[in-house]
């Protein structure tokens, strides 16, 4: 059993966990689908790497409630996202917007991949044909080589 599990067990025994609460009442099917789509794109601050729609953490539930409140108030998708960006920065978005310095994140991998492909292709084109001698034949007038051959033949 690792340390994390021991600490978790100790926390549960001593009551060090947040009581689970129900989220606010769901909206109609169409708006609730929007709430979940928006929630899937927002990062949970207490559970790194998970969206607020997927996390069971209390903070995620509270944030999803806020998304529901904003959707119910008629806010657009961009307005809902900017509410969270205003508080947590672009960190809140699981998929950063392709603008400003974020463009580097979006373009660099593709450009490096293309550059790598280009290097590979140019190297393949320059590769010698199979069966061809890898070393150019010695020149006939190479005096040193001629001397060596004479010495070997002797």
């Amino acid at each position: 059993m690792n340390l994390g599990l021991i600490l978790l067990a100790a926390g549960l025994v001593t009551g060090q966990y947040a009581p689970q609460r129900q989220g606010t009442d769901p909206l109609d099917a169409e708006r609730e689908a929007r709430v979940h789509r928006l929630g899937k794109g927002l990062r949970c601050p207490m559970c790194q790497g998970q969206s607020i729609a997927d996390s069971p953490a209390p903070a995620a539930r509270a944030q999803l409630d806020k998304v529901r409140e904003l959707v119910a108030a008629g806010r657009s998708d961009a307005e809902v996202e900017s509410y969270f960006v205003d508080r947590y920065g672009e960190w809140a978005l699981l998929k950063p917007k392709p603008q400003g310095s974020n463009l580097l994140l979006w373009l660099l991998p593709g450009m490096l991949l293309l550059a790598g492909l280009w290097i590979i292709l140019t190297q393949v084109k320059r590769a010698p044909t199979p069966g061809a001698p890898s070393v150019s034949p010695p020149k006939a007038d190479d005096d040193y080589l001629a001397q060596v051959r004479n010495d070997v033949d002797r």
Partner: peptide
């Protein structure tokens, strides 16, 4: 419902 906590980030 932690609404104030969310408002404060």
């Amino acid at each position: 419902q932690s609404t104030m906590a969310v408002d404060y980030g």
